[in-house]
Amino acid sequence: MMNALVGILTAMLGTLGFSVVFRSKREHIFAVSVGGALSWAAYLASALLFESEPTCYFIASAVVGIYAEVFARILRTPTTNIFAVAVLPLIPGGALYYTMRYAVIGEWDSFLSQGSVTLGIAIAIALGILTVSTLVTVVTSSRLYHRLSEKARMLYREHPDK
């Protein structure tokens, strides 16, 4: 439990730092940091339910994808701006490091198995966000969505567009 909390907290701080490295807008920094914490929390939660690592990464990436799609609309910004930073705790940095380390010390069997783990995680993350963005396209092109967003716009008319 303690480990999980430390993980979520450091994931949040790490994304906070990265949001500056990637030059996020000042107003987005808070949202992406929370997204970073969420991504790791989602991973840990799905790890309780599923054995396979790629599955957990897929679910976590989809959760961050949904978060990014929602906040991109609230903050009126491209989805990438939220997703690219919030997903960072999931990025297989450690796995990539160990892959590279095995190559350097010449343990080729370990290199291959670690390499395929790394690639598997990266594919799972990519599939997670793609699934969400495809679903979002389907939903937002529906008539019901148009009617609802038209109504929302009428309600918020007093706030002028940027």
């Binding site: 490295v21 990025i91 297989p92 940095g93 990539l96 490091y97 993350i125 990519a126 793609l130």
Partner: peptide, 23 residues
Amino acid sequence: IIGNIMLLIPGLALTNSLRDLIG
């Protein structure tokens, strides 16, 4: 090293490339 390499690592580039590829 891992903590620092995160700042250099092409992990994001790798994930994005797969996203482009599958997309």
